[in-house]
């Protein structure tokens, strides 16, 4: 049971009691970790884009902040989580390529969208490592809800 589940890009996973959820290589994407410490229910999503309503035919709801987080929440409730007990930790939303234009980067848009959706769902953010210009890997330990971030050439750290 002590398995690890890998969350791919535009994907999410939920897990109860033990094991680990991991998502590798968050660039401008944002990883959203939700945790209910009472029920020991964890959920992790790897969000690619901010807003599904900008697309004519959004095929995969797990791709977008506005649709992925409610979906993740729903799945967590199915295995025993309570929305009022949930805490969130977020990572990613960096800008890897240094474009010269001064527009808001995709990473910033994603961070902003994730914050808004979490605020609407009344889920507090208790830890984060966002922005900058590096890729990140995010691990969520199901047993205690700790979130660990790693980047190329740096030590792992908890947020």
């Amino acid at each position: 049971m002590n398995e690890q589940i890998r969350v791919k890009i535009a994907d999410y996973a939920v897990k109860k009691e033990e094991g680990m959820l991991i998502t590798v290589g968050l660039g401008s994407c944002v990883g959203v970790a939700l945790y209910d410490s009472f029920a020991k229910v964890a959920g992790l999503a790897h969000i690619l884009l901010s807003d599904s309503t900008l697309f004519k035919t959004p095929s995969n709801p797990a791709k977008f902040a506005d649709t992925a987080i409610p979906l993740l929440l729903e799945q967590m409730i199915c295995i025993g989580a309570k929305p009022t007990r949930l805490k969130a930790k977020i990572a990613g939303g960096s800008q890897l390529f240094s474009f010269e234009r001064s527009m808001t980067s995709v990473g910033e848009k994603n961070i902003c969208a994730v914050r808004n959706v979490l605020a609407l769902l009344r889920i507090p953010i208790t830890g984060e490592e966002v922005g900058g210009s590096v890729g990140r890997t995010m691990k969520l330990f199901v047993q205690h809800g700790k979130v660990v971030i790693s980047t190329v050439g740096l030590e792992e750290r908890e947020i």
């Binding site: 890009i9 590798v24 290589g25 968050l26 660039g27 401008s28 994407c29 790897h46 690619l48 884009l49 900008l54 697309f55 004519k56 035919t57 095929s59 995969n60 960096s94 800008q95 890897l96 390529f97 240094s98 474009f99 995709v106 990473g107 994603n110 590096v134 890729g135 990140r136 890997t137 190329v152």
Partner: peptide, 24 residues
Amino acid sequence: PLLVVDMAGAILGTVLAETNVAED
């Protein structure tokens, strides 16, 4: 061109996001 060194997943994920990729 722009050059970047990082995790393959982070580079490719960023490119997909930058392009607002509609395709699957």
